[in-house]
């Protein structure tokens, strides 16, 4: 039986791989490839945010009554990441190597410390608080992932 920690943690790893693929393409100044890979990364991140913001966080908030707590902070950091990704897309359109790399370094730090907080703290809390409904929620997450892939 899987857990939120495993399921969403694995999705973090998947997003990290797509991030790296896009950055590596920029590092080689292979701009067309970089744009495609960045789109894949961007889509995967939006999907991940949707899984959290539309399914996991509301369930966690309803169960624990913690509305202004960790999920609030995580939503704020999602917004920050989306803002950076918008700027990265603009840098890709301009083929601006320096701007992309600086934004990408910043996004990486933000993303990885965000993931660390989720994987070390929030997901284990959710696994505990939502134990009774976990399988149903995981099925919903999986469905969301496949719908958005399609």
């Amino acid at each position: 039986m899987t857990t939120f920690t495993h399921y969403l943690g694995d999705d973090h790893t998947h997003c990290d791989e797509l991030f790296t693929a896009a950055e590596n393409a920029v590092a080689e100044k292979n701009w067309n490839d970089a744009r495609t890979r960045f789109q894949d990364f961007h889509a995967a991140m939006r999907r991940h945010f949707a899984m959290e913001e539309d399914v996991l966080f509301p369930a966690f908030e309803a169960r624990t009554g913690m509305v202004g707590g960790p999920t609030f902070i995580m939503r704020g950091e999602h917004e920050q990441m989306l803002g950076l990704m918008d700027s990265m897309r603009a840098a890709l359109a301009r083929e601006d190597y320096r701007a992309y790399m600086s934004l990408s370094e910043t996004l990486l730090m933000l993303m990885r410390q965000h993931n660390m907080k989720e994987e070390n703290i929030l997901y284990p809390m959710a696994d505990q608080a939502l134990a009774a409904e976990r399988d149903g929620l995981l099925a919903t997450l999986s469905g969301l992932e496949h719908t958005q892939h399609a």
């Binding site: 320096r98 600086s102 730090m109």
Partner: peptide
Amino acid sequence: GRGAGLPTMKD
């Protein structure tokens, strides 16, 4: 969160 135009890490 409105960070457009802010310096980034390498700045």
